[in-house]
């Protein structure tokens, strides 16, 4: 589904990603872990098409197409979804309008008919349950004045509505208390299907107690320094990242 080969990317003059290779197949859950500043969030944003990062080398193929050639909205229409680490507040646009606009764009791209506001409300009623959100949230402006937990739940609500093929969760666990973490993680699990895939970017192992990964990759200084199964996350929890950093530093 997603094949990243030797990807390098910069912010301004600064190299952040220094050669990432990663393959993700349908049905898989990949966890990307690593210390602060390792490039995990950059990788997530580059996949989604953030204009602030410049890809300087390598390839990213998504469903056989060149992902890097697509604008951010086209990627989303093709089934890529990024749950933001810091969801953006958009005062003045209601959550309901925003979600329906996005939903209809994606349906249009799939050659499906658009839905009207009434039909959409019916769809929403089901989706709200996935993240245990109240209907009143739909009338509020997108993320405006939301608590940290509400913002993250709203990201997962969007994911539930848009039904992506490839979801990238960027530090979705940061700033969440244990109840919010459980709700968000259960939401993600409910949305899991054999034909979609998830990349979970996280600093801590605790989210992976809820969303169990098939593969764990450790990113450090812009490179994947180790890959393994879910037991790697537990090892990291115990030992921290330091034991992995030195070999990466030495080889640099």
């Amino acid at each position: 589904m997603l094949k990243i080969e030797n990807l390098t990317a910069n912010v301004g003059e600064k190299a952040i990603l220094k050669g990432i290779s990663l393959s993700v197949n349908p049905g898989e859950v990949h966890a990307i872990m690593g210390p602060n500043g390792s490039g995990k969030s950059t990788l997530a944003q580059v996949i989604a098409g953030h204009p602030g990062y410049e890809v300087t080398g390598g390839t990213v193929t998504y469903d056989g197409q060149d992902l890097l050639e697509m604008d951010a909205e086209v990627r989303a229409q093709q089934g890529i979804f990024l749950a933001f680490q810091y969801p953006v507040e958009i005062p003045g646009v209601s959550n309901a309008y925003f979600l329906r606009a996005a939903y209809n764009e994606i349906r249009k791209a799939r050659g499906e008919e658009e839905v009207d506001p009434m039909e959409f409300l019916d769809i929403m009623a089901k989706k709200l349950k996935v993240v245990e959100m109240d209907e009143a949230m739909l009338q509020r402006s997108v993320n405006a004045g939301f608590s940290g937990g509400e913002k993250k739940r709203n990201e997962i609500l969007q994911m539930a509505v848009l039904e992506p093929k490839l979801a990238v969760l960027d530090e979705t666990d940061s700033g969440l208390d244990i109840d919010a973490l459980r709700i968000v993680a259960e939401g993600v699990n409910k949305l899991k299907r054999p034909d979609n895939a998830t990349i979970v970017v996280t600093h801590y192992q605790r989210l992976l107690n809820y969303i169990v990964p098939d593969f764990v990759h450790v990113l450090a200084q812009g490179r994947i320094v180790r890959s393994g199964g879910k037991e790697l996350a537990l090892e990291l929890e115990e030992k921290g990242y330091d034991w992995l950093l030195e070999p990466a530093g030495a080889s640099a």
Binding site: G49, H50, P51, A72, E73, A76, P91, G92, V93, E105
Partner: peptide, 26 residues
């Protein structure tokens, strides 16, 4: 904010329109 909306599949033109409206509606 533009990237956020586009990352949900909303096209560039509609994104600009919505954000302009939002700026005023606030």
């Amino acid at each position: 904010a533009q990237f956020y909306m586009k990352s949900r599949g909303i096209g560039a033109e509609r994104t600009r329109a919505l954000l302009t409206y939002a700026f005023a509606a606030e």
